[in-house]
Nucleic acid binder design. Sequence first.
DNA 1: CCCTGCGGGTCAT
DNA 2: ATGACCCGCAGGG
Length: 474
Amino acid sequence: MSRAEEREDSDCVCSVGMKFTWDINDPKLPQDMKQFDSFQEWTDGYVRFIYSAEDKNAQRHLSGWAMRNTNNHNCQILKKSCLGVVICSRGCSLPDGSRLQLRPAICDKARQKQQKKLCPSCNATLELLPCRGHSGYPVTNFWRVDGKAIFFQAKGVHDHPRPESKSETEARRSSVKRRVNSPPFTPKRRLIETQALGPALLSCVDSSDRISFIEPSFPQHYPAFQSPEPYYNPHNSLGDVSSGIQKPSNPRLYMGRPGYEFQGYLTSPSYPMTSDLCDPRVAPVLGSSSSSTPSSGSLSTSSSFDPQGKPPAGWKDLLKSSTPYGDNHHYYGADYPCRYPSNAPGSPAALQTIITTTTKVSPTRGSDTLRFITVFKVLACPPQVSYQPCPKPPSGLPSYQSCAPPKAPGLPSCSTLLDEASSSYSTEVKVMEEPGGVIKSLSFQPEPLQTKTERADGCDYRYTYPNTYRYEDY
DNA sequence: CCCTGCGGGTCAT
DNA sequence: ATGACCCGCAGGG
């Protein structure tokens, strides 16, 4: 135990919040914090963080997920529950192969209004995919201010794709406003944009234009991402990602299945990373947030699920039972799209599994080009030393205390890397349109690009194929 | 118009 | 008692 803690300390792999044993309901929370977690936008799983009271994002109780306020009749603790994600009821693919994943409006009225709108791609109705990641109930987040710290605790594992982040939604909204207020460049564009009030809107805009209006709105939300976090290192699953890329024999191949669930899987790469620590999306921050060469050393870490190398008892069994990969994950369940019924915190789904999926997408019209989409998914985070994936709490302690996997702070936002993702993706698209170039380019991408793939996945493909609609127009 | 937080209230377990 | 959820209100952007 002490050794593990030491290691954690030295490596900073564990979030500050997870280093302490506390519960949001505790009368007394850890005091005299010397270190705070950096803000996490996409928390998932049973995690705890301690933010500085100065942290603007924490002050705003921000989350990438669409969280609405829930009255818990406790003015000390702010409770919020997840609204899920708004998708196309038909599950249609956008021209880029992605799917609509709108951020549900927080306001009830606005949300009802939102659901009356039509899919910008196929004109089908929109559908709210509710979150049921916490024993069938929405994932809940708790916020509590105490002293100089803001304590955050989350319960549940999101069982649905990520919606747009708040900043993305805001950016889109403001861009719509802006465009409505100013004359568009072409009538065609205006037509598309006024129809597409969804995120697909951005797909209609050429990349340079898009970037120009999106970029400014992001930095304010992600101050933490600038900081080089030792947390990112080396216990995350980046190694898995890279190894998955470099060893094409490893990836599991899912051939094109145009069904809903398949599409959902494909485009919900934003899938609940149970732990940001294990989130391959950290890679872009490490390796490609600048044009400099990524530190491959930190990226090519072991693919072991357990950073400490010593899984707790039962861990192996859980791992075993969690294979094959698809069996225990909602997105792979053929029965129901994006859901897996037994996603209890203690279920094998709570274990981290990296899945690399290369998918063949239908050939582009007018050519025999094959399109492949490679998806890396972290299904869940491995427990660490003290973490037991058991729902049963130790005596006297709330269950989430014992079931919370460690998280690392400093989660990068996909939004912050939007430009990057876009550029890498637009390149990719190009390749995909060229016969013969696809497989090679996608299968042997260097690590940073691959991790970008994951990242962009998390972001939504729609943002990364700026010219999709135009392509269609042709 | 929408987000957010608050708080009264109901209902089910 | 607890938790989920509904509703209206108010402040703010």
